[in-house]
Write a protein that binds this DNA or RNA. Structure first.
Lengths: 349, 349
DNA sequence: TTGTAAGCGTTATCAC
DNA sequence: GTGATAACGCTTACAA
C-alpha cells in the first residue's frame, strides 16, 4: 500500500528522495533526454513513490505557459457546436493541452466577460466561434499576444486566422437547387441574426441567389426566431397561414427544419409534395425520419480538428494557414420533382 | 486611444500608479470593503488606466485556489451530456468559476489520464460523470482532498457526493408500462455496458422487471452496440430477422431508438402497430417525428444545475447533500393498445 | 550532466 | 487602513 503523506509532495521532495537538485528533477520531467538515464530512473522512481503531481500554477508562473487553451462557443445545446467542441478537446488533449470552455449563449456582452475570464485564468491560445466579435475581445487578445483562431465562418478582413465554412455560398447553393426544381415562392425561417454572422450570411446568400433570378424575398417571408423546435413549428405555421404560402421553406438550421416538418405533419401538409422543407447543418437524424429532406451538411468534426491543428501550429511557431475554407456538401435526398403548387404557379406566369 | 505598453501591467505597476503598496492594491481587488473608499478609487483608476488583468497562475500559486472546476464526461456527441455540460458551465460561471472540460469517450484509461491532467492543471473541484471509475481516480482526488460530485447515476456505497438518476428504476418503470400494455416478447438494443453503469443499470432494470413476471430476456434478445443511429438500425434489423421477433424493443438511448424507428420505416414494419419502440433519454426530436414513441425522459439541464450547486456548496464549506436523486419522467405518447402480434401471442398462451 | 539561485506575480502574515 | 516582506512551487539561465 502506498503511504499517503500529510501534504502533497513537491518537486523538492522528489529531488531530495532522488538525491538530486530540484533543477535536475525538473529537467528529468521536462526534458528527459537532457538527463543521464540512471538519474532519470531515480527521479522517476521518486515521483512514483511519492505520487508526485506537478503544481500547474507554479509551473505556469515560472514557465509562462499554462498548456491550456480556451474556447468560447455560443452553446452546447446545439449539436453542431457540441461536436466541434468535442473535436477541439480531443485534438488539444492529444497535443498535451487542456481545454477551458465557455458558452455565451449568443450574448455579446457575456462573450466579452467570459473571454476576459479565460485570459485571466491564463490560456496559451484561444478558439473563438464566428468572426464577428466585440472589439474589446480583439483588443484583449491582441494586446496580450494570445494566438487565436476563428472558426465556423470565414474572416473577410484577412486580419485573423480562421478556418470555417462559407455560409453565404452554402445558402446560394441550396437556393439554386430549389430554383432549378422550379420553385419561385420562397420563405426562410432564420435563426436570430443579431451577433450571429453565420445566420446573417445564410440569409444573405438566399437573398443573393434569388436576386440573381429577379426574385425578392418579401419581409413577411422571413421569420427570425431562436434555434428551437418550437420556433420551427411556429414559423412554419405563420408562413403557411399567409394568403400566399411559399412552396419552398429554407430553415436556418436543422432544429428549425425538424420543427417545421413536425408542424407540417401536424397540419396535414404533405412534405415535399405541398411544400419543400430544406435546411442547414447536420440533420442525420432528421433525414433518417424524413427521407425527402434536402440539406446543406457542414462537417463539424473536421472543423474542430482543423481549427485545433491551426492553433497548435501557431503555438508551435509553425506556419499556420491564415484562412482555411472547408467544403460543405449539399445533400439532396428523395424527390427531385417540384411541389405541386410550385408547378401550378410557374405555369400560370 | 489607450496606450498599449510593451509589457502587460502587473500588480506592482498598479500599486505604483495608485501610490499604494502591492498589498493594498491586492486588497482593493480582493476585499474592496477592507480599503478606504478614496484609495479604492485610486487603485481602480490605475487598473483601468493600465488595462491591468490579474495573472491567474500567480494568483493561484499564492492563494492556492484556481477558481477553476474540472469536468470529465464521456462525450459531447451525445446531447444529454452536452446539455448537462452546458448547464455546469453556466452555473460555475455565475459563481466565478471557469470550467476545464475533458471527454474520455468511454475509455477508462483515458479517463484516468484526463483526470490526472485536470488535477495537474489545478482545479478547485471536480465533476465526474457516472459512479464507476478507476480506483486511481478516487485515489488521486481523495489524496489531494479535491471536492467532487458524481453525476447521472447514484452512488450506492454512500462514500461519494452524487446527484443523479436511478437508471434501474427508470428501466423498471418503462418495462412495467410495456407489460401492462400486454407485451410479453421483449428485446433490448443496449449501449455498450463496459465502463458504463448507466447502461448496465438500465439493462438490469429491464431484466428485473421481467423476472418479476417470470419472463426471461434471452441472450439473443439483447444486442449491445455503441450509441449511434447505425447501431439502432442494425440492432433492429437483427432482432426482427430472428425466427421469433419481439413485439417490444427497448433502446438504451434516444439515438438508438431513432435508428431503430428508421429501420422499421425502411423495412416497412409499422410502429407501434407491429412493434413498439421505446427508449431512454430525451427524444424531443424523435417524438416530434414519431408521435407514438414512449420514452423515459431525464432532465439533463436540471441535473447539471444541481450537480454544480452541490459542488459549489461543498466549496463554500456548506452542507451539500450527500445523495440527491432527481425524478425521471415516463413519457407515454400515442397508442395505448398493444401491438397486433403481442395480442395474438398472449391470446395463444 | 548537474547544481545554485534568481525570479515568475500574487496573496497573506505580520507589524505599524 | 496600510505597508514590508515572506511565502507559494516551479523553471531556467548561468556556473561548475
Amino acid at each position: 500500500m502506498i503511504k499517503t503523506s500529510r501534504k502533497n509532495a513537491k518537486l523538492s521532495d522528489v529531488a531530495r528522495l532522488a538525491k538530486v537538485s530540484t533543477a535536475t528533477a525538473s529537467r528529468a520531467l521536462m526534458l528527459p533526454h537532457k538527463v543521464r538515464p540512471c538519474t532519470l530512473e531515480r527521479v522517476q522512481a521518486a515521483v512514483r513513490g511519492l505520487g508526485y503531481v506537478a503544481h500547474g500554477a507554479a509551473r505556469a508562473l515560472a514557465s509562462r505557459r499554462t498548456h491550456t487553451i480556451g474556447a468560447v462557443v455560443p452553446t452546447l445545446d446545439n449539436a453542431i457546436f457540441a461536436n466541434t467542441t468535442h473535436a477541439l478537446q480531443k485534438q488539444f488533449d492529444a497535443a498535451g493541452y487542456t481545454l477551458l470552455l465557455a458558452c455565451h449563449e449568443f450574448d455579446a456582452a457575456v462573450e466579452v466577460r467570459l473571454t476576459r475570464a479565460l485570459i485571466e485564468r491564463g490560456i496559451d491560445g484561444l478558439v473563438l466561434l464566428g468572426t464577428s466579435h466585440d472589439p474589446q475581445i480583439y483588443a484583449m487578445i491582441t494586446q496580450r499576444k494570445i494566438p487565436y483562431v476563428l472558426t465556423w465562418a470565414l474572416d473577410t478582413s484577412g486580419a485573423h486566422h480562421c478556418v470555417g465554412f462559407n455560409n453565404r455560398a452554402a445558402a446560394v447553393q441550396l437556393t439554386n437547387h430549389l430554383l432549378e426544381l422550379g420553385h419561385r415562392e420562397f420563405a426562410m425561417i432564420s435563426g436570430v441574426t443579431a451577433n450571429n454572422e453565420r445566420a446573417r450570411d445564410r440569409l444573405q446568400g438566399i437573398r443573393d441567389a434569388l436576386a440573381a433570378r429577379g426574385i425578392k424575398l418579401a419581409p413577411e417571408r422571413v421569420i427570425e426566431k431562436p434555434y428551437s423546435l418550437a420556433s420551427g413549428r411556429e414559423g412554419l405555421g405563420v408562413l403557411m397561414a399567409s394568403v400566399r404560402p411559399p412552396t419552398a421553406v429554407l430553415c436556418g438550421n436543422d432544429v428549425l427544419a425538424i420543427g417545421a416538418i413536425a408542424e407540417c405533419n401536424a397540419l396535414g401538409i404533405a412534405v415535399p409534395r405541398q411544400v419543400s422543407i430544406t435546411g442547414f447543418d447536420d440533420m442525420e437524424i432528421a433525414s433518417l425520419l424524413s427521407p425527402g429532406l434536402t440539406t446543406v451538411h457542414f462537417p463539424t468534426l473536421e472543423l474542430g480538428q482543423l481549427a485545433a491543428a491551426n492553433l497548435l501550429a501557431q503555438l508551435a511557431g509553425g506556419n499556420a494557414a491564415k484562412r482555411h475554407e472547408l467544403p460543405i456538401e449539399l445533400k439532396v435526398r428523395g424527390t427531385t420533382a417540384p411541389p405541386v403548387r410550385a408547378q401550378l404557379r410557374t405555369a400560370r406566369r
